[in-house]
Design a protein around this nucleic acid. Structure first.
Lengths: 366, 366
DNA sequence: TTGTAGGCGTTATCAC
DNA sequence: GTGATAACGCCTACAA
C-alpha cells in the first residue's frame, strides 16, 4: 500500500507483531513455521525490503563495505575494483565505491562519509591522508580496514601491496643484462608511494651492477613544467643519452609508447612496470612487469571478510609478486654511442629514417 | 567522550538543548550568534560529525547520489564517473558508485540498495533491467533519475545518450567516400544498445551509397564461439574480403588493432567508434569518432542537480554529438582485389612482407 | 530565540 | 513462541 512498505505494514497485514516479522526477516529460528510462512508470503505480496538505513542506525553496522581509490579511471584500480565487487556480491555485501579526490581533506571526508554510513568494512588506497595521525575508528577495535597498494605510514593494519622494489630491481637488472648502462626511469609521481619504491629498486639494480645513478635520467611529470610534454625528449637528447627506459606505471608507459612511436625510435629498449591493453601488439611488443589486480582485489577482500567475521589475529602485511613478461622491447641491445658525437654509432638505416621523420620535441597531435 | 559523539553529547557539553545544536549544524539563522559560537566550538572540540544515516532515516533523503554503471573497468564510463564525481563534490554531495553486475536481478538489487540508502538522486546506465516494468520509485514523483548512454525502454525520464546512429553513419560514409564498398562492422555486443544503433547507422550509410548490406561483414563477440579469437580473421579472409573496418566501441577497437598489427595489415582502412589511449600514436594513427565522456557526465549531473532542486519540467532526451578525428587509418584507399584471386591486387611490397610474418588466424601471445 | 514531544524503520530487552 | 516498549541519532512541529 504505502510507497515502500515497512515492517509495520507487513505485521498489520499478516496479523502479527512487528517483532515477529523482524524475526522472520532475520531468520530467527524461534518462530513457528506456520506463522513464519504466513509472514513470508505477506512480505512477498507487499514487496517488502528491509531498510538498511534503519537497520544500520539500530545495529551500527550496514551490510555494506566501502572501497576508496584515488581515481577509478586508473585501469589498475578499476580491475582491482571489479574483483572486489564480485567477491562482495558473493558474500552478500553491498559495495560502495568512492574516490579520494585530490586533497587530504577530501579523502578524510570520503572515509568519514563511508564510516558514518556504517559500512562494516573498508578497503582503502591511502592517497593523501596520514592515517596514523587521524585516529579514525578503523582497524583493530574499530571498523575493519585493509589498505591496498600503499601502506599507511605508521599504522598497524592489514596491508596488501605488490613487490615494487623487487620487481623494479628485476626489470632494471634485465636491461642491464642486455647490455644497457644508460637507463632512464620515467614516472608520473615519483616522489610518492609506490613509485618511490620502484625508484629504489631501480637504483639498487644499478648499484648492484656498478652503474652510477644519474639524476638526469630520472624524469617525473611532477617535476616537468608541462605535464603533457613527452617525458622522454630530455633523456634521449642528453649528451650521453639513455639507451633504455623503465617506466614506473602504465600511465607513464603510454607516454613512452607515444613518444617512441612518434619518433620511430625502435632502437630504444623499454620495459614497462605494469601491463597495458595493447602492449603485446605494438612493434616491438612491450616487455612488462605485470601486476595482478585480480589477485590484489581477491587477497584484500578475503582478508577483510575474515576480519569482519571476527578474526582478531595480528595485522598482516602481504606482498604480492609481479610477473615478468618478455615480449621484445626489453630485449633490445643498446646502440653504442661515442660521447663526443652522440649519433655516430647509429646504424645508417636509423639515421636515414630519423631524418625522414618530423622532429620529436613537440607534443603529439590532439 | 563517546567513541562517536552525537548531538546529545554536544548539547550536554555546551549546556543547550539537542535542538539548538541541530539548528547550528543545519545553519538555521534563528540562533543567537553567541550560543551558535559556543556550540560550534564544542562541536569542534568533540569532533562531532552528523550521522547521515540518522538524518536520512528522518528526512528520507541522504546528501548522496548514486551512480550505477555496468562495470567501472570500462574506460569510457570510468571517465564519465570522474566528471560526475567532481561535480558531485562541488555540489557538496557524496557520490556512491556501484556497478550493475551481470544480471537483471543484480542490477535491481543495486538500484534498490541505493534507493534504500536514501540517495537523493541517481544516474544510471541501464544494463539488464527493464525499468518500465519494474515500477521503482524513481523519476517524476520519486527519486530523480537520469539515464545515460542508453535509454530505458518505455520510460519517460531524463536521458543523455550520444548520437550513435548519426556518428556511425558518418564514419561509414567517410569510408565509402574513400572508395570502400566492403566495410566490416566489428563489435562486442552488437545486439544491444548502443551498438545496435551504431549498426543501424552503418547500414543506413551503406544503403545511402547503394551498397548491399552483407551480414558476413558484421561480426560480434557474442556470436563467435571463442571470445578471444580475433574477430577480424573471418571478414578479412572472405572470398570478397573487407577492405575497411568500422569498430563499434573501444574494446572492439583494441581487438582490431591487435589483429591488424599482428598481421601487419596496414592496407586495411580502420575507423574506431570512440577514442582510445594510444590511437594517435599507432602507425597509421587511428581515425576515430570520439565520444566525450566528460560532456556526458557533466550534462547528466547538471540535469540531475536541477531535478533534485525541484525542477519538474518535462523529461528531457539529450543527444550528444561525437567528434570525427581523421588521423590516417580511416583515409586509406581500398586495394582492388580480383574476385577469383584475392591476393592478386596487393602491392608487391605488401606481399613480401606478408610472407615474412606468421599466419594470422591464431590468437596473439599472452 | 530556545526547548519539548514525537516519530523515521529497525533491532533488543524484557515480560507474557 | 510471541508481543509491547524502548532505544539508535536525527529532524519536524509546535509550544514556551
Amino acid at each position: 500500500m504505502s510507497p515502500t512498505p515497512t515492517l509495520r505494514d507487513v505485521a498489520q497485514l499478516a496479523g502479527v507483531s512487528i517483532k515477529t516479522v523482524s524475526r522472520v526477516v532475520n531468520e530467527d529460528p524461534e518462530v513457528t513455521e506456520a506463522t513464519a510462512a504466513r509472514v513470508r508470503s505477506t512480505i512477498e505480496a507487499l514487496g517488502y525490503r528491509p531498510n538498511p538505513l534503519a537497520r544500520s542506525l539500530r545495529t551500527g553496522r550496514d551490510e555494506a563495505i566501502g572501497l576508496v581509490v584515488e581515481t577509478i579511471s586508473d585501469p589498475f584500480f578499476a580491475a582491482v575494483t571489479e574483483t572486489v565487487e564480485e567477491a562482495a556480491r558473493e558474500a552478500g555485501l553491498f559495495l560502495i565505491i568512492a574516490s579520494a579526490g585530490r586533497t587530504p581533506d577530501q579523502e578524510r571526508a570520503v572515509v568519514l562519509g563511508l564510516l558514518h554510513r556504517s559500512v562494516c568494512g573498508l578497503i582503502v588506497v591511502p592517497c593523501w591522508l596520514g592515517y596514523a595521525r587521524e585516529r579514525l575508528p578503523i582497524g583493530p577495535g574499530g571498523v575493519p580496514v585493509v589498505f591496498i597498494d600503499r601502506p599507511p605510514s605508521g599504522l598497524e593494519v592489514d596491508t596488501v601491496v605488490v613487490d615494487n622494489e623487487g620487481s623494479a630491481q628485476r626489470a632494471t637488472a634485465h636491461l642491464v643484462a642486455h647490455g644497457h648502462r644508460r637507463i632512464a626511469f620515467v614516472g608520473t609521481a615519483i616522489e610518492r608511494f609506490p613509485l618511490r619504491q620502484r625508484l629504489s629498486g631501480y637504483a639498487a639494480a644499478l648499484a648492484a651492477a656498478g652503474i652510477e645513478f644519474d639524476p638526469a635520467l630520472v624524469v617525473s611529470h611532477a617535476r616537468s613544467a608541462d605535464g603533457d610534454a613527452p617525458l622522454l625528449s630530455g633523456v634521449l637528447s642528453l649528451e650521453d643519452p639513455a639507451t633504455a627506459v623503465l617506466s614506473a606505471n602504465a600511465v607513464a608507459s603510454l607516454d613512452v609508447v607515444r613518444h617512441l612511436h612518434g619518433c620511430a625510435r625502435t632502437d630504444v629498449a623499454f620495459v614497462s612496470f605494469d601491463d597495458f591493453p595493447i602492449a603485446e601488439s605494438l612493434s616491438p611488443p612491450v616487455t612488462v612487469a605485470r601486476q595482478d589486480p585480480a589477485l590484489m582485489g581477491r587477497t584484500a577482500i578475503d582478508l577483510l571478510l575474515r576480519r569482519i567475521r571476527g578474526d582478531a589475529s595480528a595485522p598482516q602485511r602481504l606482498v604480492l609478486p609481479t610477473t615478468f613478461v618478455e615480449r621484445g622491447s626489453g630485449e633490445i641491445a643498446p646502440v653504442r654511442v661515442a660521447r663526443a658525437a652522440p649519433d655516430a654509432g647509429r646504424p645508417t638505416r636509423r639515421r636515414t629514417r630519423a631524418a625522414a621523420i618530423p622532429p620529436c620535441s613537440t607534443t603529439s597531435q590532439r
